[in-house]
Design a protein around this nucleic acid. Structure first.
Lengths: 221, 221
DNA sequence: ACCTGAACACCGTTCAAGT
DNA sequence: ACCTGAACACCGTTCAAGT
């Protein structure tokens, strides 16, 4: 019945029978494709299933529930992260690591959204955390200091990723609405900040200086 | 019909007729009460309406749509923020301001969730931004530097607020699940970080030192 | 003017049933 | 073993109808 009524799923269905017999990997891959192409909101079990030419209930045989699907998607991203390293100071190498993380996650914005859902991270992200903790130790921090510093760096990075949409072109209407509702006479500096032409990639360019500033403060005794 | 079948709304309904004739303010107040007591997920138009002894559709006369309700709730919180100030250095006064913001928002965790939805903030938050920008200027930053510094401070604060649930007792199951799935032999430092007894209020206590570190880096020429 | 009832197009999830 | 159909208990939102 739905095969004749639905017409908005232009990819795999239409070929009639499925080639591959539906595995956990294919479900997760379909989820990632959907998230990348149409945003996290498009990742519903029904949509993912449709993408695979199958009903939503068939997915439960492979993923448990939706949360598990999202975590699996997350872990796929973490797995693909390449952590660059160098021969400079621990601080320089930390900048390198976090910039790589930042760029990697910026390329797939839905990841920040899932992380906001409360997930710490998948197992594959452990590599990154371990790498950062080792560099912080090399810089002279003890276990507890390194732990706190790791979280500070992550909060900064995560906050940045979360606010990219609001600062980018997508956030224009919200910023405009705000400017009309705030009495700008009483807030001259805010008015200047909001009205300043948002130079291309300003938010991205601001990330590294802020990161360096945070590191300078964290690593200073 | 629903007045006899529903029995889970213990507050206003049950008194029979409503006292107050349903205003925008009462709708927003009901939303905040619900968010505070049962979390943001409980704030559905149907639940808010039930709380007021009314149908969901009645709300549309007063709030436009759900997003508008959430922004109005947000603005109520911002309005109640008291920004303390002192006579110390700009840096100390910035710590004072952000700590007040942090404590205020920690008390109502749903706010961070709404902000994650992409809202910059409501008009009432303009006071805070203006205050911070003025202090950054006093510390010697020009408009552009102050703008970047403001965002760095906000990213840090927002990231912290977003991760509080994951680090607190609520996040225990997720942390535990993670520890079982990661090969901890390969990640000794991560293992130590996750297994360390999370001292009471560790995340809260880590906020201010990280904030000071960030400020030190941002205000250094 | 203000509110309601019924409906629409969605969700995640369960469960008995098919092959 | 693997998938489907139908159903349940929800969402936000629209629209004609009531008072």
């Amino acid at each position: 019945m739905p095969s004749t009524t639905t017409d908005s799923d232009g990819t795999s269905p239409g070929t009639g029978k499925r080639r591959v017999p539906l595995s956990r990997a294919s479900v997760v891959a379909a989820g990632r494709r959907l998230a990348r192409d149409e945003g996290l909101a498009a990742v519903t079990l029904r949509r993912v299933a449709a993408e695979l030419g199958v009903t939503a209930m068939a997915l439960y045989r492979h993923v448990g529930d939706k949360r598990e699907l999202l975590v699996a998607m997350l872990d796929g991203v973490a797995e693909q992260l390449v952590i660059p390293d160098g021969t400079g100071s621990p601080s320089d190498r930390l900048v390198l690591a976090f910039r790589a993380l930042h760029d990697h996650l910026t390329a797939e914005p839905w990841v920040a959204e899932v992380l906001r859902g409360g997930e710490l991270f998948g197992p594959s992200a452990a590599r990154f955390v371990e790498h950062v903790l080792a560099l912080l130790a090399e810089a002279g921090l003890d276990d507890e200091q390194a732990g706190d510093a790791y979280w500070a760096l992550w909060w900064y990075t995560f906050g940045h990723l979360s606010y990219l949409p609001a600062l980018g072109p997508e956030g224009r209407p919200a910023r405009h609405e705000l400017m009309t509702r705030v009495r700008m006479d009483d807030h001259p500096r805010l008015a200047r900040m909001l009205s300043r032409p948002p130079r291309a990639g300003a938010a991205e360019d601001a990330f590294v200086p802020g990161l360096r500033a945070l590191l300078r403060g964290l690593l200073a005794d």
